[in-house]
Structure formats: structure tokens, C-alpha cells
């Protein structure tokens, strides 16, 4: 959604300028925007996934240690 709306803004921007150089820049801008957006999103996603796994692991460790305590 964000990507799409930025896209639309970029196209409108390029059309307002109306000069050829700006058309080229508009096209480059859109390509760069989308192709930078992807790896950044992927890195953020990776952090989130790793964070999730760590949390899950800690939860499991706490559970097992608590079980051990109650067993004793």
C-alpha cells in the first residue's frame, strides 16, 4: 500500500515537472525506491523473525526450569 501510494505520488510529481530529464529521473526514482524498499523490508523482517525465535526459546527454557523446580 505504502509502495503504491509513493508510486502514484512519484508519477504525479514527474508529470508536474514535465521536462524530459524529470521524466527519466521519475522512472529512475520509482525503480530505485522499489528496489531499495525490498532489501530494507527484508532486513527488518529478519530482525523480527529472529527476535520471535529468541523469545520463543526463552519462554521454553523458563518453562522447563520451572517444571524442574516443581518436580523437586
Amino acid at each position: 500500500m505504502l509502495v503504491l501510494s509513493v508510486n502514484v505520488v512519484a508519477i504525479v510529481f514527474a508529470s508536474l515537472l514535465g521536462n524530459y530529464a524529470d521524466y527519466i529521473l521519475g522512472a529512475m526514482f520509482i525503480a530505485a525506491l522499489l528496489m531499495l524498499f525490498e532489501p530494507i523490508q527484508l532486513m527488518l523482517k529478519r530482525r523480527a523473525v529472529l527476535h520471535d525465535i529468541k523469545r520463543l526459546k526463552r519462554l521454553q527454557q523458563r518453562e522447563t526450569s520451572e517444571r524442574k523446580k516443581s518436580d523437586q
Binding site: S15, Y23, G26
Partner: peptide, 26 residues
């Protein structure tokens, strides 16, 4: 699939801009 879809959007967007300048329509 997601990278493919993204590049399709890039292709359509850049094509639209090129089309506007050469053909005269987005």
C-alpha cells in the same frame, strides 16, 4: 513471487513514464 511482482510494478511504472513521453499517454 514477491520480487517478481515488485519488478512487474517497476516495469509498468517506468513503461508508463516512457509511454507518456514518447507515445503521448500513460
Amino acid at each position: 513471487s514477491i520480487t517478481g511482482a515488485l519488478l512487474t510494478v517497476v516495469a509498468l511504472a517506468t513503461g508508463a513514464i516512457w509511454g507518456k513521453t514518447s507515445w503521448g499517454t500513460w
